[in-house]
Design a protein around this nucleic acid. Structure first.
Length: 266
DNA sequence: GTGCCATGTGAAA
DNA sequence: TTCACCTGGCACC
């Protein structure tokens, strides 16, 4: 489930597996052959996540630095294990291996190598990531306060808030009691700060749990009875866990949005 | 077994 | 605005 929490987990895992090691890189599928050749034999320095973007930094034998930029998109997936690695099968975009471990990447939206200036450009266009201590929450708040776009669209805009996907959008707005159609400029500073803090907590919980968990303790029983793990996500037409009103659904920013018209009035 | 939908984004039109 | 990416889960036959 690649919203931001997944990518941060992967970054930690990749540091564990690869940091400080030279990697053997290949692209069995053939779509990243030239790129794999450029990092083949390089030392993996570290792995980092910025929103849904994963960045591996490598130091090559000639001393130059290169960054592997991966975005999983909807279908992308990593797999790993202890050597020896199984024979490559199917669409394997990239295989990285050390003497001990292998890491496979399949189906990403983005898999490319960036020079340092290109990394700077990428980082500059990524918004505030609630999982990062260096996140600029005020800048995100300023963008929201200046926008006529609905908050449900702004939360999905990765240049404003990074790492929030369709599930966290729906669930955090429900938890905050904010209607997704409320324009950003009508989200006051107090509400935004509460939303930001809640998102940070939810994403941190997601990193720890390895999946998206948004229910408050007191609501777990009702959720279990309703056969769901969420307040509103994918619950179109079903009764709201809090008030019983049928959950609404509509497309916003090309994704299905869910909300309770009673708990999130406006 | 088949077909549809999905946690996301970028390119093409 | 639509398609492509390329995979897994699930409803339905």
């Amino acid at each position: 489930m690649p919203e931001g929490h997944t990518i941060h987990r992967l970054a930690a895992q990749h540091r564990e597996l690869l940091a400080g090691h030279r990697v053997i890189a290949s692209s069995p599928q053939g779509r990243f052959v030239a790129g794999a050749a450029r990092i083949d034999g390089a030392e993996m320095v570290t792995a980092d996540a910025r929103g849904k973007h994963l960045l591996h930094s490598y130091r090559r034998t000639d001393g130059t630095e290169l960054t592997l930029h991966v975005h999983l998109g909807l279908y992308g997936k990593f797999g790993h294990g202890r050597t020896p690695a199984p024979a490559p099968a199917g669409a394997l975009r990239l295989r990285l291996a050390t003497t001990k471990d292998w890491l496979d990447l399949r189906g990403p939206t983005v898999c490319e190598l960036l020079e340092p200036p290109e990394v700077a450009v990428l980082v500059a266009r990524i918004g505030a990531d609630p999982l990062r201590p260096d996140a600029d929450q005020r800048r995100a708040g300023a963008r929201i306060a200046a926008s006529r776009a609905p908050i449900g669209a702004l939360l999905m805009d990765q240049s404003v808030v990074a790492g929030v996907g369709n599930i966290y959008r729906a669930e955090s707005l429900f938890r905050a009691g904010v209607n997704p159609y409320r324009p950003g400029r009508e989200v006051d500073a107090v509400t935004w700060l509460a939303l930001w803090r809640d998102l940070r907590g939810l994403l941190q919980r997601g990193v720890r749990a390895g999946r998206i968990e948004t229910l408050r303790t007191g609501d777990r029983r009702a959720a279990r009875a309703a056969g769901t793990r969420f307040y509103v996500y994918k619950r179109s037409g079903q009764a709201c866990l809090r008030c019983g009103t049928p959950v609404m659904a509509a497309v916003m920013v090309a994704r299905t949005l869910f909300w309770c018209p009673t708990c999130q009035p406006g």
